[in-house]
């Protein structure tokens, strides 16, 4: 995959499959420390210790349509290539938290790509009843986007209404652009 935002789209599907009702995505750049940290936390079914131990294997999947599961192994490999870190915390019945760290200036780190397109796909593609929070920061400055807040404002108009989806994409993109105006490593690419 050639954008980090595509990895995020992919990894969040695991939370959706786990029956999560609330999924929190954080994207934090720290220019001074030259780090990018991405976390994905959910309140889904979590994983048993036994599953957690083999979840980074490319031959672990919960699907029956194929025998490989490459989402987690690919991102783990990317964190290793980019002098980063990889961590999964999970408890059955409580949820899962995935933490991905990268050296932000690393030559092998793909660009973030379009997080707003990823959020559009997530909000449109996942069943009603899943709330997403996006917390985007560059050196502490940034914004939060919450589907719960949008839903409250819309009073019964579903989030997958085309006009709403289009607003969500533009709103997130505008806020990312404003945040990056401060000069993040990604803004220069």
């Amino acid at each position: 995959m050639n954008e980090l935002s595509l990895y995020i789209l992919d990894l969040v599907q695991n939370s959706v499959t786990a029956g999560a009702k609330h999924i929190v995505i954080t994207v934090h750049f720290d220019t001074a420390a030259d780090t990018l940290e991405i976390t994905i936390s959910d309140d889904g079914c979590g994983m048993s210790r036994e599953l957690l131990e083999r979840v980074t294997s490319p031959f672990t999947t919960t699907r029956k349509t194929r025998k490989v599961g490459l989402g987690i192994p690919m991102i783990m490999q990317l964190t290793e290539m980019c002098e980063g870190k990889f961590d999964i915390q999970s408890r059955p019945g409580e949820g899962t938290k995935l933490t991905l760290g990268f050296q932000a200036s690393h030559v092998d780190l793909p660009p973030m790509g379009s997080l707003s397109e990823t959020m559009l796909s997530l909000v449109n593609g996942t069943p009603e009843g899943i709330e997403f929070t996006l917390d985007y920061r560059v050196d502490g400055r940034g914004f939060d986007f919450s589907t719960e807040e949008v839903r409250q404002m819309l009073e019964g108009v579903p989030l997958n209404t085309p006009e709403v989806l289009s607003w969500i994409r533009d709103y997130i993109q505008q806020n990312i652009d404003e945040t990056q105006g401060g000069g993040s490593p990604q803004a220069e690419q």
Binding site: D10, Q13, R66, E117
Partner: peptide, 19 residues
């Protein structure tokens, strides 16, 4: 929209349908 779909370019396809 599994890993295989996303890696092959499913995101712009889905969003093009939405648009």
């Amino acid at each position: 929209m599994a890993t295989c779909g996303i890696a092959a370019g499913a995101r712009p396809v889905m969003n093009a349908f939405v648009d």
